[in-house]
């Protein structure tokens, strides 16, 4: 069957001080291809220093509304055997806390060790309960594919976008002003 390939959610980290944030998804065939694709799509402009991808179907998600209506079963009562190899597992926890206008969804907040995704959620609620969560994403850590953190990769994948000034609206600064103030051509050749 002809498909558009599986969907992978993409997490982008803008600076070392910021968490990985869910920016959208890409369609790709395998983990490495998904990472390369994510770079092409979500690092066309600055800023980025790291990217993670995970198959959309490997994400466990709950919104505040869902949790209010259907609290997840107690971890202890969890009888479904996990499809993963060993236990306990590590899970990455992502959380959304604001309705404010934004171009990203959940933020990475940390890792928990748990016996199931539901157990991971419970632990996340305890460990990261400082702010009310509007949505949670729980991802088995071993399902995440990550860009190489080495400086050569960071330079090669993410740094060049900063030089592509022609994609920034600031590059066309005089265009916003009245036509009479608008210069014909640029004084200096700022080519690359």
């Amino acid at each position: 069957m002809d498909t558009q390939w599986p969907r992978w959610e993409v997490f982008k980290q803008d600076t070392p001080a910021k968490p990985h944030q869910a920016v959208g998804s890409v369609h790709a065939a395998d983990p490495q291809h998904a990472l390369l694709t994510a770079r092409n799509i979500f690092a066309r402009r600055p800023q980025a220093i790291s990217m993670w991808v995970v198959r959309a179907e490997d994400i466990f998600s709950w919104t505040k509304e869902e949790l209010a209506e259907n609290p997840p079963p107690e971890a202890a009562k969890q009888t479904e055997p996990l499809a993963y190899g060993f236990q306990p597992l590590t899970f990455c926890v992502f959380r959304k806390t604001s309705h404010k206008r934004s171009m990203t969804f959940v933020d990475y907040v940390g890792e928990v060790s748990a016996s199931s995704p539901e157990d991971a959620l419970k632990q996340a609620q305890q460990q990261f309960g400082d702010v009310e969560a509007l949505a949670w994403w729980i991802v088995p850590t071993d399902r995440l594919a990550k860009s190489d953190p080495g400086s050569e990769t960071v330079e090669s994948w993410f740094a060049p976008a900063t030089d592509k000034t022609y994609k920034q609206q600031q590059y066309y600064a005089t265009i916003g002003s009245h036509v009479s103030k608008h210069k014909l051509g640029r004084e200096t050749d700022d080519e690359e």
């Binding site: 959208g24 206008r101 171009m103 990203t104 609206q169 066309y172």
Partner: peptide, 16 residues
Amino acid sequence: RAMVRICAEEAFHHKQ
């Protein structure tokens, strides 16, 4: 969210 991202990028299209 898609729209916020698109608007941020689209401003350049308009200006060029």
